[in-house]
Design a protein around this nucleic acid. Structure first.
Length: 330
DNA sequence: TCGCCTTTGAAGGAT
DNA sequence: ATCCTTCAAAGGCGA
């Protein structure tokens, strides 16, 4: 059974192991259920039906999908074996591997080979040269020292990587606070000063216009708050399926002459399950390296940072109901 | 203009 | 330990 996990006992806590199939029979069933290239026309019509159904009963289907996912996960859990066991399991070549293969620009103070630099300058992904990757525009991992671990954020660094990611001294001084960083990070600017696509400006395309219009009607406190730069959004690293989608989307669009992403994603989802374990392993491995690189670049980042929905406590304290209650006392 | 749709996987909080 | 929710990408579409 395939097992794609990190070697060395520290894989960032992510359970990105390869989905193990119960046996070849299971995988064959999945592969049979997936469409073939010649079935595209049928699939298109079936997708129309599926989408019609899903529009009529979104919640039911959604629940069903979650149920399916749970079953699938349960199957994984049931079939999975404890990590780091070798006994005949497929073992991904992660041991001591991750960033050893990184191009020199990723190594602090390391030599920069012209060939690698050309790739980097062309905006190629350092880990997935096969992908026209724009999510990660690699820049040397000058990890900002000011973004020290936030309370509650437990992103631990892999020892084997940290050796290669020892911080270059004097790049960014500890005295530099978030404000100065955020100035650099505006419009996807990495602390190094190199634009970074994983960093996007905060939402609100017409923020400036809105500010100008409201500048005469807002209180001093509000103005002050708005003048403070918002944290730029650091996107989540892509998982294996997302990387697969990114690579295969154009191909599916060309084959199916479809453009609607929802339909394309359905196709890609089926194809994903039809992949062999070796084919999937490639993407799980890439995703794993994505996360590691992301963690190195943004050690204090948490997926929670990008959650739009407020946490229950702040939601409570900002709620109209809470204000109405407190107004009675003050 | 904005949010929804649709997929899988990762992460984190809640139970 | 398990469940639930959110977000990553993408682009058409409807409100």
């Amino acid at each position: 059974m395939p097992q794609l996990n990190g070697g060395g006992g520290d894989d960032l806590g992510a359970n990105d192991e390869m989905i193990p199939f119960k046996d070849e029979e299971d995988h064959e069933k999945i592969r049979e259920s997936a469409f073939t290239e010649s079935d595209l026309a049928d699939l298109k019509s079936s997708l129309v039906n599926e989408s019609e159904i899903s529009q009529n009963s979104n919640s039911v289907i959604r629940r069903g999908q979650q149920e399916d996912q749970r079953i699938y996960t349960d199957k994984r859990e049931h079939l999975d074996v404890p990590r780091h066991q070798d006994g005949g399991m497929y073992k991904a070549p992660y041991s001591g591997y991750p960033f050893l293969m990184l191009p020199e620009p990723y190594l602090p103070n390391g030599p920069v080979s012209p060939s690698v630099m050309s790739v980097v300058q062309q905006g190629m992904h350092p880990l997935t040269p096969l992908l026209p990757y724009d999510h990660f525009n690699p820049s040397p991992p000058h990890i900002p020292t000011d973004v020290s671990q936030k309370p509650g954020v437990h992103r631990h660094q892999s020892q084997e990587i940290s050796g290669f990611y020892s911080l270059p001294q004097g790049q960014i001084t500890p005295s530099m606070n978030w404000f100065s960083h955020s100035l650099m990070l505006q419009s996807g600017m990495h602390p190094t000063g190199i634009p970074h696509p994983a960093i996007v400006p905060p939402s609100g395309k017409h923020e400036h216009d809105q500010f100008d219009r409201s500048i005469y009607t807002k209180s001093h406190a509000e103005l002050k708050r708005e003048k403070e730069p918002k944290k730029p959004v650091i996107k989540k690293p892509l998982n294996a399926f997302m990387l697969y989608m990114k690579e295969m989307r154009a191909k599916v669009i060309a084959e199916c002459t479809l453009k609607e992403s929802a339909a394309i994603n359905q196709i890609l989802g089926r194809r994903w399950h039809a992949l062999t374990r070796e084919e999937q392993a490639k993407y799980y491995e890439l995703a794993r390296k994505e996360r590691q690189l992301h963690m190195q670049l943004y050690p204090s980042w948490s997926a929670r940072d990008n959650y739009v929905k407020a946490d229950p406590v702040s939601e409570l304290f900002s709620s109209a109901h809470y204000r109405s209650i407190t107004m009675r006392f003050f």
